[in-house]
């Protein structure tokens, strides 16, 4: 068991050689990008060359995980986490503390941060105090007081989300399952004489509404567990699971397309922006 840096193994010669090769390749890339850059000044070309080369290095480092875990991947992963955390913290300070709190808290601070002072509001001081109290979690003896703002956050979020989902994801969606099963019905004669497979035709639109209504009902039956799934009820339940599977299949198909899009995006960057061979 390793007990400290003294027991850590030094990298093997093979690893050292790989590191040197990678460093040389990316140094050549940097020089090449810097000398062929289109920016107005040499300094900008050197900077842009470094950024593109470093971005390519990080992309390849992340891709290297597909082969196996390795130090390049670990470096890229840790860098990403660190930079993201720092970026978010800075953004939080400037957008929440400076952007929201300062303009309502102090004219002096507003002048200092160059944001227009709006008006004093006690509400912002309460929010600020809650924010400070939330940080009390860092103190073991006063940690309990952090539950108060946490309770406010949870209560507010629950209240907001309840009304939000009730309206948009429940009422509107349920209301929309009440569809006419025979769209624009004017009798069988009219239906057959105007039979068409057009997307906005009577047949296709009616069939679509049937699928929605039957799909919703059968999907609900599948999740109804107070009655044994046998007979007609069982058949509806089986149809419900088929509907669910088709839905999951559609989602999976879209997911595959999304993931391939990310791959295409990165490969385009490597071949176009970095290697300039497209």
């Amino acid at each position: 068991m390793a007990t400290g840096n003294g027991n850590r193994k030094s990298p093997s010669n093979a690893v050292k050689i790989i590191l040197v090769i990678v460093a040389v390749v990316f140094l050549i890339s940097w020089i090449s990008k810097a000398t062929t850059g289109m920016a107005d000044s040499t300094w900008l070309n050197i900077r842009d060359g470094f950024l593109i080369t470093f971005a390519a290095f990080l992309t390849l480092s992340i891709f290297s995980f597909l082969y196996n875990d390795n130090p390049f991947y670990k470096f890229a992963e840790h860098l990403y986490v660190g930079v993201s955390a720092a970026y978010w913290m800075c953004l939080g300070f400037w957008s929440i503390i400076v952007g929201n709190f300062v303009p309502h808290a102090s004219k002096t601070l507003s002048t200092f941060f160059k944001v227009p002072f709006q008006e004093y509001s006690w509400f912002y001081y309460v929010a600020f105090a809650f924010g400070v109290i939330l940080l009390m979690r860092l103190l073991p003896k006063a940690g309990w007081i952090a539950r108060w703002p946490l309770a406010v956050i949870i209560g507010t979020t629950a209240g907001f989300n309840l009304s939000r989902y009730l309206h948009s994801d429940f009422m509107s969606q349920v209301g929309n399952t009440f569809q006419p099963l025979f769209v624009d019905w004017q009798g069988a004669g009219h239906f057959f004489s105007n039979l068409s497979l057009a997307a906005d035709g009577q047949l296709v639109m009616s069939a679509g509404n049937w699928i929605v209504v039957v799909g919703v009902l059968c999907g609900l039956v599948y999740f109804f567990f107070s009655k044994e799934h046998k007979g007609m009820f069982g058949a509806a339940s089986r149809l419900g699971i088929w509907i669910l599977m088709i839905t999951f299949g559609a989602s999976f198909g879209y997911t595959v397309m999304g993931r391939i899009s990310l791959l295409v995006g990165r490969i385009t960057f490597l071949f176009d922006d970095w290697l300039s061979i497209l």
Partner: peptide, 11 residues
């Protein structure tokens, strides 16, 4: 994004 699209067709 492709991952989200199927979930928003009901809307």
């Amino acid at each position: 994004t492709g991952v989200m699209a199927a979930d928003f067709y009901p809307f």
